[in-house]
Amino acid sequence: MQTKAVLTQTEVARILAAARAEAQANQWAVSIAVVDDGGHPLALERLDGGVPLTAYIAVEKARGAALGRRETKAYEETINGGRTAFLSVPVLSGMLEGGVPILVDGQVIGAVGVSGVRAELDAQIAKAGVAAL
Rank of each mutant, 00 (worst) to 15 (best):
residue 52 P to L: 11
residue 61 K to Y: 10
residue 72 T to M: 08
residue 48 D to Y: 04
residue 58 A to D: 12
residue 11 E to S: 13
residue 38 G to V: 00
residue 82 G to D: 05
residue 78 T to I: 08
residue 26 N to P: 00
residue 14 R to C: 05
residue 125 I to A: 09
residue 6 V to W: 04
residue 33 A to C: 10
residue 126 A to P: 13
residue 69 R to G: 14
residue 24 Q to H: 03
residue 53 L to S: 14
residue 53 L to Q: 08
residue 8 T to E: 06
residue 97 E to Q: 13
residue 54 T to R: 08
residue 83 R to Q: 14
residue 38 G to C: 04
residue 74 A to W: 03
residue 40 H to W: 01
residue 80 N to L: 14
residue 59 V to Q: 14
residue 84 T to I: 12
residue 129 G to P: 08
residue 42 L to Q: 13
residue 98 G to N: 07
residue 34 V to W: 02
residue 34 V to C: 10
residue 68 G to R: 05
residue 14 R to H: 13
residue 8 T to D: 13
residue 18 A to C: 05
residue 77 E to D: 15
residue 28 W to P: 00
residue 33 A to I: 04
residue 130 V to F: 12
residue 99 G to Q: 12
residue 124 Q to A: 13
residue 58 A to Q: 14
residue 6 V to R: 09
residue 80 N to E: 11
residue 17 A to W: 09
residue 81 G to V: 03
residue 109 I to M: 00
residue 41 P to S: 15
residue 100 V to M: 06
residue 96 L to T: 05
residue 91 V to E: 07
residue 107 Q to D: 07
residue 125 I to Q: 00
residue 111 A to G: 07
residue 108 V to H: 07
residue 101 P to N: 12
residue 68 G to M: 10
residue 127 K to R: 15
residue 116 G to C: 08
residue 12 V to T: 12
residue 101 P to R: 10
residue 96 L to I: 06
residue 7 L to Q: 04
residue 9 Q to M: 15
residue 85 A to H: 15
residue 63 R to V: 00
residue 89 V to R: 00
residue 54 T to F: 11
residue 56 Y to W: 05
residue 2 Q to F: 05
residue 40 H to K: 03
residue 55 A to S: 15
residue 118 R to S: 11
residue 15 I to A: 06
residue 103 L to R: 05
residue 109 I to S: 02
residue 83 R to A: 14
residue 26 N to L: 15
residue 9 Q to I: 08
residue 109 I to A: 01
residue 112 V to C: 01
residue 94 G to H: 07
residue 22 E to S: 15
residue 113 G to E: 10
residue 28 W to V: 03
residue 76 E to H: 11
residue 89 V to E: 02
residue 36 D to A: 02
residue 108 V to E: 10
residue 46 R to C: 11
residue 64 G to T: 14
residue 83 R to L: 09
residue 105 D to W: 00
residue 29 A to S: 11
residue 131 A to I: 09
residue 102 I to H: 03
residue 80 N to M: 05
residue 46 R to I: 03
residue 98 G to R: 08
residue 98 G to Q: 06
residue 28 W to I: 02
residue 126 A to M: 05
residue 54 T to P: 05
residue 11 E to V: 08
residue 84 T to C: 01
residue 10 T to V: 15
residue 131 A to C: 08
residue 77 E to W: 00
residue 42 L to C: 09
residue 20 R to K: 14
residue 6 V to H: 09
residue 32 I to E: 06
residue 76 E to P: 02
